[in-house]
Design a protein around this nucleic acid. Structure first.
Lengths: 233, 233
DNA sequence: ACCTGAACACCGTTCAAGT
DNA sequence: ACCTGAACACCGTTCAAGT
């Protein structure tokens, strides 16, 4: 008679095979992906893990540390640059990988640079990036320029893609402005260029991947001119 | 006998000359500048205004709308591009202005693209930006490329500057990693390129303004090659 | 029209216990 | 060693009143 409850208990403990730090962090990433950063609380995460909220504090010091660990898991998804096919191609692949991670985990964009100490995966990733450029003949100084420039571009692009789209939101922005102004005609008079571009894009569409690639190639071409011209030896 | 309290009451009402939406938003910007986004709550803001928390809800619908209004006040600080001295110089001045606003109001960077509908100042600003480029001979398509690219760069750079510095935090990052690893020597073995660059920067220093300008000029030069080459008429 | 007071449903987190 | 329960000090926000 007591065997059925016992079996259920075993099944339950098999379904949640003991909590540890990594399991908490991974569940955090999954939950944040699903509900966004606003709906992500210690309490919802604990509920997802079938555990009482305070149980999490055995594995992470606090929410801040939890988020930092989650961000480092995102960094772990970014592939290290491989200079085998040249630095340009290596930068393209790495930028695409970082962008992909930021698009998948939209909540991470605002946390990557905001949090405290960078995690180990973050350090590993940037060490590899710097190494790829240094081994490709870039000077100290130029290497810093390039990493700063590329990361800024990827972050900024992901930040834009996160909500602002030239396709829909800007359009709805103009629509919203029109609503506020009471009349569409007045909005057209106030923001003629905005409406011009919005109208054109509504017809032609907007491809984020292509847009990102175009901007990145502009960057890489510009970087090529920097190479060797900036007190490099 | 009753005159003193009455005078004090008048003085108090003169010091806080009646709350309105604009006063709430401006006080919000000042408070967020001082305490950061985490310390910024409806309750601390109301306290700063010498009023009970619920009084704010007569002037803003909720915290989200309050933040959106504050962000639009930041946009109002950005100067519109003036194509009088050529589009390149216009873009330089506008990028510097946007960057300046984002550095002054560090809390705004994460909110600019995250919030809901863009505000009127945001629309005005982007309309002027698009107009400057269109009048300088850029096509619809190239104009979209350029605004996307420039904004991404400014956002991303501000995001980096917000916390991550190649001068101090990265250095402390390496130090932190060394601490975690138990030994500095092990960190040097694990992240050699990171430490190389960090060491070099510690000697030479890091100038954000110069770094920003260098990256921006790379962008503008690249953009110049796009001009006229992308199905422009 | 503008402000207040009390209250509600949530947070993150501490602390003393349980097993 | 790991998890729980009750509690504390905070949030944003609603609602009924006050002037």
């Amino acid at each position: 008679m007591g065997q059925v409850p016992k079996a259920q208990q075993q099944e339950a403990s098999a379904r949640r095979p003991r909590l540890n730090r990594d399991a908490v962090l991974r569940a955090g990433v999954v939950l944040a992906d699903q509900v966004g950063i606003d709906g992500f609380t210690m309490r919802t995460l604990s509920q997802e893990l079938g555990v009482v909220p305070m149980a999490l504090y055995k594995h992470v010091a606090n929410k801040q540390e939890l988020l930092e660990g989650m961000v480092d898991l995102v960094w772990a998804e970014v592939t290290e640059p491989d200079s085998g096919h040249g630095w340009k191609q290596a930068m393209r692949v790495r930028a695409a990988s970082l962008r992909s991670a930021l698009v998948t985990h939209r909540w991470a964009v605002g946390l990557m640079e905001a949090a405290g100490r960078p995690g180990l995966e973050n350090l590993r990733q940037h060490n590899a990036l710097l190494g790829c450029l240094r081994e490709s003949g870039f000077s100290f100084r130029t290497t810093v320029h390039v990493t700063s420039l590329l990361d800024a571009y990827v972050y900024g692009f992901a930040l834009q893609q996160k909500t602002l789209s030239f396709e829909t939101p800007e359009e709805s922005a103009a629509a919203a402005a029109a609503t506020r102004d009471g009349e569409s005609a007045e909005a057209a008079a106030r923001y003629p260029y905005l409406l011009e571009v919005v109208g054109e894009l509504a017809k032609e569409g907007y491809d984020y991947d292509a847009e990102f690639a175009v901007g990145l190639d502009v960057l890489l071409d510009g970087i090529e001119t920097l190479r060797g011209s900036w007190r490099d030896g």
